[in-house]
Amino acid sequence: MNRRRPTLPAALTLTAAAALTLSACGSDDSSAAEDSGKIEGADTSSGTPAVPSPSSTDTIGRPKITFPSDAKNVFEYEKTGNAAKDAALADSTLSVNAVDEAIFEGSADTKALGFYNAESALSDSITYALGYINKKHTWVGETRYFDYKVNLSGDREAYITYCSDESKSFIKDKKTGEVKDTPTTVDSYVLYNAKLAKNAEGVWQTTDIASNRGSKKCQP
């Protein structure tokens, strides 16, 4: 697959209990396109933060994530009004951005990668990023994330499903600068199931994630 985000490793599978929880979260549909709750993953100017700056009341010390000027993630969802759900949604987008930042930086040792990812999601995200880094690849363009659904399990566990549209993002060879302008197919659309856990500092870390490339649920 020439698109910039191949299917995640097979090891990234949710437990049966988690899958059942995810299947029951349809009533929590918080997806929307082009609304005031949309979070853009990267600014269009070089060296600018890839996510909104933390509020003045945020004492966690979140690392800044930056994207190059030719790459951008766009996250589309509406806030639910539930503080825990909204915090989990926001941190799930930072998990995605942290993995991409590692690819852009050419290092799996970035601060954000381990800040927003843990357990199997962290180890597999490192392996995933190294797949780009070792090949001297990066990506350019825009990837859109949409159709978010979130469900809580107690006070410190959340399950989120969402889709991605990679039709406008492409692999770039760092050595030659060549961009692989691949055509849009059903495989340009991916369904993700993610499990998050709230750590002692209050960060909702992604701990497990599974993907289904070409999912009919995400195709236009």
Rank of each mutant, 00 (worst) to 15 (best):
R4Y: 14
A16P: 00
A18R: 00
S23K: 14
A24Q: 15
S27W: 11
S30P: 00
S31E: 14
S31F: 08
E34K: 11
D35W: 12
G37L: 04
K38S: 15
G47T: 02
S53M: 10
S56W: 11
T57W: 13
T66E: 14
T66H: 04
F67W: 00
P68V: 05
S69W: 08
D70Y: 05
T80C: 05
G81P: 02
G81F: 10
G81K: 13
N82V: 12
K85Q: 14
A87F: 03
A90Y: 14
D91T: 02
D91R: 02
S92M: 07
T93R: 08
A98R: 00
A102F: 02
A102V: 06
F104T: 04
S107A: 10
S107T: 15
S120M: 09
S120V: 12
S123C: 05
S125N: 08
Y128L: 01
Y128C: 00
G131R: 03
I133T: 01
I133L: 00
K136T: 09
V140T: 13
E142A: 10
E142K: 14
R144L: 14
Y148V: 06
K149R: 14
N151V: 13
S153N: 09
R156D: 15
E157K: 13
Y159M: 09
Y162P: 02
Y162W: 10
D165P: 00
K168P: 03
K168T: 15
F170N: 07
I171D: 09
D173L: 11
K174M: 09
K174V: 10
T182Y: 12
T184A: 13
V186G: 07
S188R: 03
Y189F: 15
Y189P: 01
V190F: 06
V190S: 13
N193Y: 07
A194S: 14
N199Q: 04
W204N: 02
I209K: 07
R213I: 11
K217P: 01
C218V: 01
P220G: 11
